[in-house]
Design a protein around this nucleic acid. Structure first.
Lengths: 133, 133
DNA sequence: TAAGTAATTGACGTTAACGTAATCTATGAC
DNA sequence: GTCATAGATTACGTTAACGTCAATTACTTA
């Protein structure tokens, strides 16, 4: 049984919650990243849509393009009974893991550098402080 | 004494080495990210310029904009005798460290998800494999 | 039923980060 | 000298990711 959180959202509601604009959400839709239900013509978002949007935003924070993020999201929608599809999926996943591990390396390196710089700043400031006493 | 690696590069040389185009390098210059010497009108790059470019590329891999990367690079060029400048520098560094730590979180979360998905793929494939035997 | 509020669609505008000519200059090879 | 090459400088084109109207449509509330 699926956890039936019956909460529904409008574009603007959802946009506010996520700190983005309705325009952005609709734009993601035109790019095929989300596909909310409609009540007549009006878009209606479920909890699942919301989660999907959060994945999108996380992807953006990681510096991926929307096209890239779409690939990623599509990974969730593969039919597990199609052997070749699963094979492709596995390839895609592995590639992306590789990318992210490269990124992690860059990240750690940069963090280390910044920490060092911070130490130097602190030392510099303390040094001057000493002279004043 | 500064390690005097006397190697100099042309734009195209450097571009090839770094896997980018000369156009990109010149573009970074117009944006104030690098400022190579000139021999007459021709750009001449030193080992330091090269290192700077690598920092730029790492920044890009991390998803930062050029403006953003410029801020980062400017951190290296602060006069350590100016107390207020160092204070500002420290602030900037601290902010950026915060950003990167957020990014690291996103990264780890995504990696974990992907690993799980990979396991499911493998399990799925092995399952079908079993039936065939 | 009139009026205000919210949502949709369509079209054009904008910024970032280059790509792609086109033109011009300097220089080494022959 | 001239011819080919490399580099420089405009300048215009392009893609991504929205922003910003403008014109409709739908709903609700007095």
């Amino acid at each position: 049984m699926k956890s039936n959180s019956a909460e529904l959202y409008s574009v603007t509601e959802l946009a506010e919650q996520l700190g983005i604009t309705p325009r952005a959400i609709r734009f993601y839709e035109t790019k095929g990243l989300i596909k909310p239900q409609r009540a007549g013509t009006t878009r209606v978002y479920t909890h699942r849509d919301r989660a999907r949007l959060q994945l999108i935003l996380r992807g953006k924070r990681l510096g991926f393009t929307l096209a890239n993020i779409k690939e990623y999201l599509d990974l969730y929608d593969v039919d597990p009974s199609q052997e070749t599809q699963v094979q492709m999926l596995l390839k895609g996943i592995t590639r992306r893991i590789g990318e992210l591990e490269q990124q992690r390396e860059d990240l750690e390196t940069t963090l280390i550098e910044l920490e060092e710089m911070r130490q130097q700043c602190v030392a510099n400031i303390n040094g001057k402080d000493k002279n004043k006493r």
